[in-house]
Design a protein around this nucleic acid. Structure first.
Length: 303
DNA sequence: ATCCCGTAGT
DNA sequence: ACTACGGGAT
């Protein structure tokens, strides 16, 4: 026997059963947990990647009202999808573009029927390892163990898994009961979301793993390092967001009309003027989010 | 002011 | 391996 699963308790069956029973006894209700439609689940996962779950619920219903099927989304104008995204404060606009592109892939490459394996799902734009396993699990009960920051935190604390992506992936896979990816991945992320958050709530949430948890035993609830990010206020990101938001009603605007909508201190020939704005519009155009005519100095969302 | 967080591009 | 990417919640 190797030391491959040295991090895990001997009675893995009991660990698995405890978590599943805990999850099934009580958990937060989200509408996407009551569907097995791959398109609806993909939309929820892409939204959830960047936005707190409570805020996703309304946006998810609205999105599916507007584009009920993958065919509807594939046929939509990119500008409308990006406009919806910014209108609902969903964050990174690139993801709206990716989701729209992924819908196009499903229609053109799979005749509108979603592929069911993580490896095929990973080929879709904006779908990486996490989302591929989430969709494969929740739509088809056929995913591998998901490894998101919730799962990393749980494994790091409970079983002393080293802060290393390969280690997390290996232990997460060893821990998942065969053929139960749907309930398992829901359950372990729920554990990270309500019991094993940054500030843990072991007793309050009746954590099912207290008897095995190294952190609960030692009182050391350190979590894996999360990279710090540059401040948002005053950042390029902030102004990109404001530009897309100003264009969301599909207007085409001249730079000098757009400028004051983006920053109050806009002066055409000033430090933050036409040249500065054109630079950001040019980046947005490179990202495929806007159509920018630099000579005419006019910009609008890209169809 | 800080937190949240998976993917793509390089 | 590192960085860009949004904006509400707290």
């Amino acid at each position: 026997m190797t030391d491959e699963v040295a991090s895990l308790p001997d009675d893995v069956d009991a660990v698995q059963q405890a978590l599943i029973e805990w999850y099934e006894a009580d958990h937060r209700e989200f509408p996407w947990r009551r569907t097995d439609d791959a398109y609806e689940i993909l939309v929820s996962e892409v939204m959830s990647q960047q936005t707190q779950l409570g805020r996703v619920v309304d946006a998810w219903h609205s999105f599916l009202d507007r584009w009920p099927t993958v065919h509807d989304l594939a046929a939509a104008d990119r500008a409308d999808v990006v406009g919806f995204w910014t209108d609902h404060s969903l964050g990174y606009n690139n993801r709206a573009k990716y989701l729209h592109e992924a819908a196009g892939q499903v229609v053109s490459e799979y005749d509108g029927e979603f592929p069911e394996t993580p490896s095929e799902l990973s080929e879709l734009m904006g779908v990486g390892p996490y989302t591929a396993n989430a969709v494969a699990s929740f739509a088809f009960n056929d995913g591998d163990a998901v490894v998101d920051t919730n799962v990393k935190r749980v494994l790091y604390r409970a079983f002393d898994v080293p802060d290393d992506d390969g280690e997390f992936e290996r232990v997460a896979a060893d821990l998942m009961p065969d053929g139960e990816s749907r309930v398992w991945n829901n359950a372990i992320m729920e554990l990270g979301g309500v019991a094993c958050e940054k500030t843990p709530a072991c007793d309050e949430a009746d954590c099912p793993w207290r008897e095995w948890c190294h952190a609960y035993e030692t009182g050391d609830f350190t979590a894996p390092d999360v990279p710090t990010q540059p401040s948002f206020e005053g950042s390029r990101r902030q102004f990109r967001g404001r530009i897309v938001s100003a264009l969301k009603d599909n207007e085409e605007l001249a730079l000098d009309t757009l400028g004051p909508k983006v920053r109050v201190d806009y002066v055409p020939d000033g430090e933050y003027g036409r040249e500065w704005l054109a630079g950001i519009c040019s980046d947005l155009a490179d990202d495929g989010l806007v159509a920018f005519d630099a000579d005419a100095g006019r910009v609008r969302l890209r169809r």
